[in-house]
């Protein structure tokens, strides 16, 4: 019973981080029709910024803030200088279908090498703001820690902020509109290109938070967040790749599923289970749990 409770709690906090990564992939996919594999690199860059700030000031919250800002800046930078150029250059041939994927992979490699050059390739720790030891209930020690609770809280706050932006502000409306129908939005006076860059910035910020939250319980290295990217992608596909709500639900479900596998079946199967979940979803419900109208072959 206690094991079940543990699994659920850990699953939730793991899933919360997947959700954030998943949201950042969904935001970019909706506006640009690119699955941004470079997001793992962007997140790792921001996390290194957080590491640097945390090392100098010892303040986790300042570090998180700096990571968010740098993540947003880097996201906007990549869209503005790189993606625009990509779409201008690549117009025809068999490469057309795979160019965005390959380009973001190249970008991932560049960011990762740059990070490795600046901070070295040795693993680095990031100090958590609160204890990562399990919470004690009577004589039992749960694996669920104060830090896991903090993750849930932070992700909840971030989701609230995002909901506010998308439901209550005109920026949110233009983000949704230009993702849904760029042509009509442009005709209605939305600056679609600028809006897309803002979308990339928000996505970069979400990825940065995911990276910073995931790191204290593991270690930081130039490719330490690749796995998070894969899980974020799987979560996004479970949720349909189009909807932010779907991304959150997908992330939580995946977090729970992965934790159940790790606790009840075997922790070496965790990586493969992501692939299995993905295949199952794609075969059984290819449009995702929260499905949009668009088909998957678009």
């Amino acid at each position: 019973m206690l094991k079940l409770l543990n699994t659920i709690l850990i699953g939730l906090s793991t899933g919360a981080i997947y959700s954030l990564m998943s949201i950042s992939l969904v935001l970019v996919w909706r506006s640009t029709r690119v699955v941004n594999f470079a997001q793992a690199g962007q997140a790792v860059f921001s996390t290194y910024i957080a590491y640097e700030v945390s090392l100098r000031t010892g303040n986790f919250w300042l570090a998180l803030l700096c990571a968010v800002l740098s993540g947003a800046l880097l996201g906007a930078f990549i869209d503005f200088f790189f993606m625009r150029m990509l779409f201008k250059h690549v117009t025809s041939g068999p490469i057309r279908a795979i160019a965005p994927v390959v380009a973001t992979l190249g970008l991932l490699g560049i960011i990762r090498s740059a990070v490795g050059y600046i901070w070295g390739v040795e693993v680095k720790p990031l100090e958590p703001p609160v204890s990562t030891d399990g919470i004690r209930i009577g004589s039992e020690v749960l694996p669920f820690s104060t830090y896991d609770a903090l993750i849930l809280l932070i992700v909840f706050v971030v989701l609230m902020i995002l909901t506010f932006i998308f439901q209550r502000t005109s920026l949110g409306l233009s983000l949704k509109a230009s993702a849904f129908s760029p042509e009509i939005s442009r005709l209605s006076g939305v600056r679609v290109d600028l809006t897309r860059t803002v979308g990339w910035a928000i996505a970069g910020a979400c990825g940065a938070i995911a990276g910073v939250l995931a790191t204290p319980t593991s270690l930081l290295s130039p490719n330490s967040l690749d796995i998070l990217l894969v899980f974020g992608f799987v979560a996004a596909v479970i949720g349909g790749l189009e909807s932010m709500l779907g991304a959150v639900v997908g992330g939580i479900l995946l977090g729970l599923g992965v934790t159940f596998i790790a606790n009840y079946v075997g922790s070496t199967l965790v990586f493969l289970s992501a692939f299995v979940f993905l295949i199952i979803v794609l075969l059984v419900k290819p449009a995702g749990i929260i499905s949009g109208k668009r088909s998957r072959n678009a």
């Binding site: 994927v101 894969v230 992608f233 790749l241 199967l269 692939f275 794609l282 290819p286």
Partner: peptide
């Protein structure tokens, strides 16, 4: 065969990450 570009890319990526751990 049922998937297109990004889905296939992500699925095969997950395979590349997962399979060697077997």
């Amino acid at each position: 065969a049922r998937l297109s570009g990004p889905y296939l890319a992500g699925t095969t990526l997950a395979l590349a990450v997962g399979l060697p751990s077997l």
